[in-house]
Structures are given as structure tokens and as C-alpha cells.
């Protein structure tokens, strides 16, 4: 009785921390149950997709702005960490936030002028930006290594305390083994989920929803529309930048063709499939679309064909997304009667 009371109080007082812990902590057992290195590696890649989908969800799901060039921010983060590391010897733990910030700066620079553009035109601006970034990385050989990319990016290092033979810190470097990366990505996903929950419950979050529902009404009510939209854009770019740094450190190589338009579209599909505006929805969408191609591997040549068919079927049977938020569904109805 008392124990359940304790949990109830805990949940009431820290609803977001509890939700994040409840949904994500079980994943920390994954490498202990499934020892197959390949599966852990796959889960790590999916974790990066989850980060990206959560980040894109801020812009697409919360703010209702269609971004078709999200891979560009992922690319900028990856290249930012790679360049900082290769030229300035910047360690991973410094490069991680730095990559996020660089990506955010780009997000703001791109966002500031283009965010006034309405609806689908913004989608095209972001699409154009995404292509420009990819082509630029491909063509600026002196800085980015061109199509060969940047090689030899440092993996993260952590310091483990040791007590045998006197207290000292032992350096442990990440390697091909994906398990440490798995926990790194899981930690970041938890951090991002918590951050986004807090944001969605804050003034900014409510302002974002207000803008999505009716921009004009929101601005009439005194919501600083441009500022709020920019915040969403910047935050989403920040998350993508951090994901990029993790990706670069895990691959130890970045090449421009990893960040093409198809990736932007795929992340968008994850957000929409999972349910726009729902943080767990984005994560679930990423999990499904990330794992599907691997599950369909045995169909060999028919793999991507089936992937396409399943995307269509999933949307037809669940147009609002698997965990579509109640609000969006309501909004849909009003949109129709307009």
C-alpha cells in the first residue's frame, strides 16, 4: 500500500522522469538478453533514428512546419564533430554539444529568413537547403574530403575509477563493439525525451501547439510566433546535430552520400507513421521503420518493394499515425469543416 502510494506520488511529482524511465530503462537490459553484437548494433542505429525522429517531431509535429531537409542538420552535426576532432583534437564529450550548437546555429540562420514562408513553401526551402548542404559537402574537397569523406574520427573515451593498486582513473575507449554506443545513444534518447516532455509542457510548447492550430489567432493572442517557431527550429537542429556527432564517432567516417534526401524523407515518415506531435510516437515510428528493412532482409530483392507497400498499408489503416495525438485528430476534423 505504502509502496504504491510512494510510486503514485513519485509519478505525480515527476511525471516526465517517470515516463521516460518506465519506457526507456527496460531497453538498457537489451544487450544483456540479446548478446548478438549485430542486433545491438542495429538497435544503436535505430536509437540514432529515434533521436532524429524526436527532433524532427518538434518542428513537424509540434509546430506544424514541414521540414524536408532534416538530414542536413544531421550532416552538419556529423561534419562539425569530425572537423573539430580532426583539426583541433576536440574530444567527443566536448564535440557532442559543440556539434549540436553548430547545427543549431545553422538552423537559426536558415530558419530566420525562411520561417515566415508559409506551409509547403517552407518544405521546399528546407528541401533546397538539404540538397545544398549535401552537394556542398561533396564539392568542398579541401575541407570535407569531398566524396571520400573524412576518415579516422575519434571514438569516445570514458574514464573509469579503479581502486586496485591505489585509486586511479583508467581510460576506456569505445571500439567496434557496439554495446557502449548502445548505452550512449540510450542515454541521449532519454535526455532528449525528457527535454522534449518538459518543453511540450512549458510556455513554449503550448505556444507551439497554438501556432499549429491557428497561427493568426495565436499571434493575435500575443504569442510571439516567429520567435517561438525559431526556437522549435533551433531545438530540432540541436538534437539532429548531437545525433550527427554520435553517428560520426560510431562510424569513424562521414561521407556526404549518407545524408541524402531519402534520409530526410525517411525520418519524416517515421514521425508521421508514429503519430505527429507525440514524442513516443516518433520513437515508435523510428523503431518500426528502422527495423523493417532488417526484418525484410530475407526477401532480398523484394525488400524495398515490400517496404514501400507496408508504408502505404500502415498509413491507410492508421492515417493519424500509430500514437496519433488526440489534438491532431481534433484539428483534422476542424480542418475539414473549414
Amino acid at each position: 500500500m505504502r509502496v504504491s502510494d510512494f510510486f503514485k506520488r513519485l509519478f505525480r511529482r515527476h511525471p516526465f522522469s517517470c515516463q521516460v524511465a518506465l519506457f526507456l530503462l527496460p531497453f538498457s537490459l537489451f544487450p544483456l538478453i540479446d548478446k548478438n553484437v549485430y542486433h545491438i548494433d542495429l538497435m544503436t542505429s535505430i536509437g540514432i533514428y529515434v533521436l532524429l525522429a524526436m527532433g524532427l517531431n518538434v518542428v513537424v509535429g509540434f509546430a506544424g512546419l514541414l521540414n524536408l531537409g532534416y538530414a542536413a542538420f544531421f550532416a552538419i552535426g556529423a561534419y562539425a564533430y569530425a572537423l573539430l576532432n580532426l583539426h583541433a583534437g576536440c574530444p567527443f564529450w566536448l564535440g557532442l554539444p559543440a556539434a549540436g550548437i553548430v547545427s543549431m546555429i545553422f538552423g537559426l540562420v536558415i530558419g530566420a529568413p525562411s520561417i515566415r514562408i508559409r506551409g509547403d513553401y517552407l518544405a521546399i526551402t528546407t528541401l533546397g537547403f538539404g540538397e545544398i548542404v549535401r552537394i556542398a559537402f561533396n564539392n568542398l574537397d579541401e575541407w570535407t574530403g569531398g566524396p571520400n569523406g573524412l576518415l579516422g574520427i575519434a571514438r569516445p573515451k570514458i574514464w573509469v575509477p579503479r581502486f586496485e593498486g591505489g585509486f586511479h582513473w583508467e581510460t576506456f575507449s569505445f571500439s567496434v563493439n557496439p554495446t557502449p554506443y548502445f548505452y550512449l545513444v540510450l542515454g541521449l534518447v532519454m535526455f532528449a525525451a525528457y527535454l522534449l516532455f518538459r518543453m511540450s509542457d512549458s510556455k513554449i510548447g503550448r505556444a507551439l501547439v497554438a501556432i499549429r492550430e491557428d497561427e493568426l489567432a495565436a499571434s493575435c493572442m500575443g504569442v510571439p510566433v516567429l520567435k517561438i517557431k525559431l526556437t522549435a527550429f533551433g531545438l530540432s537542429a540541436f538534437i539532429a546535430g548531437m545525433a550527427g556527432a554520435v553517428f560520426a564517432s560510431k562510424q569513424t567516417i562521414v561521407t556526404p552520400d549518407s545524408f541524402d534526401f531519402v534520409l530526410s524523407v525517411l525520418i519524416l515518415a517515421m514521425v508521421v507513421l508514429g503519430g505527429m506531435g507525440n514524442i513516443w510516437g516518433a520513437a515508435l515510428g523510428a523503431l518500426i521503420l528502422g527495423a523493417l528493412p532488417e526484418l525484410l532482409r530475407e526477401f532480398a530483392n523484394y525488400r524495398m518493394l515490400l517496404f514501400g507497400v507496408m508504408m502505404v498499408l500502415m498509413m491507410i489503416f492508421r492515417p493519424q499515425g500509430i500514437l496519433g495525438s488526440q489534438l491532431i485528430r481534433r484539428e483534422m476534423r476542424t480542418e475539414k469543416s473549414e
Binding site: V37, D41, L42, G149, P178, Q251, T255, S258
Partner: peptide, 11 residues
Amino acid sequence: NPTQAVLAANK
């Protein structure tokens, strides 16, 4: 695609 290549190599 180099990214897919690394994934396959890990496998």
C-alpha cells in the same frame, strides 16, 4: 553506401 557497408561489416 558506406554507412550500410559498416553495418554489414559489423554483422
